[in-house]
Design a protein around this nucleic acid. Structure first.
Lengths: 141, 141
DNA sequence: TTATTATAGTCAATAAAAGTCAAAAATCAA
DNA sequence: TTGATTTTTGACTTTTATTGACTATAATAA
């Protein structure tokens, strides 16, 4: 795959995280930008597109002097990212309210959403729920 | 039979894939279009008519800067693993025949099965289809 | 406390791809 | 030949990446 700058920064950070003790790395945004010879907001871009809750990461930061950015890879026990499942459920309810699907269909879809993927990893579930929502959107057309 | 431009592009890509290490080739749509002196959407046409899952290929792509199109020829184990999808589809049909679900519900489920997870890795799809089938079995209880 | 400095964040503009869709053209089959 | 199917084309859309000017926040020095 042709690597964009964003790809390279992503890869670099992931290597650092893998090598770390605690699946965690702390950097300085401006310093990293200098390393890759780009503007600091490029780093912000990478963080917001590649190190999100959806992809299984948590980022924290502080501005000002001694500022930093800390990235942590979440494991399954950090199970608080239920956003995508809830979003899918809301979407199903919405479809039912708008009469795009029947109540019975909505119930079936919600059952599958809630029970089929128990035991799957968090970020995998997120991708699945997102894909299902997108497919449902297409189904309506 | 006279070869159409689409045929030539198809042939060209297949040669590249054969010669590759891993039954895989990566191109840039616009670049390839330039090589064959045609519009980029011609390449899209070739991909969507000649490199589909049905014909044993997987295509992935990314838009935007440093975008690409990647084509992978699925191997036997990949194709064999399509049994899980087919099994799920059969099961859905069976549920419909036994009046456990309506025709409309069956159509929706089959649509989701066939389209929602395109681009997911093969083993992942297997796990997803298995999980869906199992959940559907439970749904009936 | 206040001013200064050192960080990181936000947002919008621009660019660089690929995707969509439907009309027009070419080819094929009856 | 003619009607159907396949191919070709291009205008328009969407997605992704890059950049920089401006804003917000925290630590430190005065």
């Amino acid at each position: 795959m042709k690597k964009s700058l964003a790809d390279k920064i992503e890869e670099y950070l992931k290597v650092l995280i893998e090598r770390s003790e605690n699946r965690q790395v702390e950097i300085q945004r401006s310093e990293l930008a200098e390393t890759f010879d780009c503007v600091p907001s490029q780093v912000t871009y990478v963080l917001s597109t590649r190190f999100t809750e959806e992809t299984g990461y948590l980022t924290e930061s502080r501005r000002g002097g001694k500022g930093y950015v800390k990235i942590t890879r979440l494991d399954d026990s950090d199970l608080k990212s239920d956003t995508f499942r809830r979003e899918l459920i809301s979407f199903i309810d919405e479809m039912r309210d708008k009469k795009n699907i029947s109540s019975k269909e909505a119930e079936m879809l919600k059952f599958l959403t809630n029970y089929a993927f128990q035991g799957f990893a968090v970020e995998e579930k997120n991708r699945i729920f997102k894909a299902l929502k997108k497919a449902l959107e297409n189904y309506l057309l």
